[in-house]
Simulated assay, not measured.
Amino acid sequence: MPSPAIDDYLKTIYHHTEWQDARITPSQLAAVLGLAPSSVTEMVQKLSAQGLVEHRPYGPISLTAEGEHRAAAIIRRHRLVETWLVREFGYAWHEVHDEAEVLEHALSDRLLDGIDERLGHPRVDPHGDAIPDADGQVHRPPFVLLGDAEPGHRGRVLRVSDRDPDLLQALETAGLQLGCTVDVVGPHEVRIEGAAEVSVPDGARDAVWLTA
């Protein structure tokens, strides 16, 4: 049965391994959700009993095939809504996350399919995150975190984390837009194609992904 609480857990677990391989731990899950560890432990046990996650005491958590399918479905809703708000209503990319958190649970499947068709079946949302298709599949090119990119690396800005609206605004001000091509100059400097060298805003090294 639909449950926003369960969906939030599954989304968070799914998000954690989208752009890196290490599985999420119960303490990390509690920190991201802003909940007490005991509450998270109790919910993870329930999710495990429902066949949605795999977890051993004190060990990391991973989604089962069923859990991943359900997580991909709700993430598809969230990211289509974000894209819809930006394209149709003029929202900025730092404004859409909270709106989508509300609307993702309210839209019918029929309306969601209509939005998807109207938008031309987009593959990525305004932050560069892949939108799962109706079968839960995603299409994501090889990538590297900006903080791991060596000087001299050239890549296109593929994805920007949407967790910090202030950082999104700082990146926009610096000209680091989704899709722009950059050359990594040093630990805190990049050169944007067709523009001058710019300093990377605080936090960007762990929040921006480039094509590999």
Score class of each variant (00 low, 15 high):
162 D>I: 00
117 E>R: 15
196 A>S: 12
38 S>M: 13
32 V>F: 14
71 A>Y: 08
180 C>S: 08
125 D>M: 02
164 D>A: 11
196 A>Y: 03
27 S>T: 10
46 K>F: 12
177 Q>H: 11
28 Q>L: 04
153 H>I: 06
52 L>V: 07
1 M>E: 11
45 Q>R: 15
121 H>K: 14
141 P>T: 04
149 A>L: 03
62 S>G: 10
123 R>H: 12
23 R>C: 13
46 K>D: 09
99 E>Q: 11
10 L>H: 01
43 M>D: 04
22 A>T: 15
175 G>V: 04
35 L>S: 07
184 V>Y: 01
190 V>C: 05
195 A>K: 04
169 Q>A: 12
62 S>C: 06
173 T>P: 00
192 I>M: 02
94 H>C: 12
44 V>F: 01
42 E>R: 15
156 R>E: 09
61 I>K: 09
123 R>K: 14
84 W>R: 05
111 L>I: 11
85 L>V: 08
185 V>E: 15
30 A>K: 09
58 Y>E: 12
1 M>T: 11
127 H>I: 07
57 P>K: 13
200 V>T: 13
143 F>H: 07
111 L>C: 03
99 E>L: 13
114 G>Y: 08
181 T>P: 00
175 G>I: 07
171 L>T: 09
91 Y>T: 00
151 P>S: 05
139 H>A: 10
38 S>E: 13
13 I>D: 03
195 A>W: 01
98 D>Q: 11
113 D>K: 15
141 P>W: 04
36 A>I: 06
9 Y>I: 03
71 A>D: 08
166 D>S: 15
69 H>N: 05
168 L>G: 10
66 E>A: 12
26 P>W: 12
34 G>V: 09
56 R>N: 10
34 G>C: 08
6 I>S: 04
68 E>L: 09
3 S>W: 00
111 L>H: 14
22 A>D: 14
78 H>E: 13
200 V>Q: 01
28 Q>N: 11
134 A>T: 11
57 P>Y: 10
185 V>F: 01
42 E>C: 06
93 W>C: 04
210 L>C: 07
92 A>Q: 13
63 L>V: 15
11 K>W: 05
176 L>K: 04
158 L>H: 07
27 S>M: 13
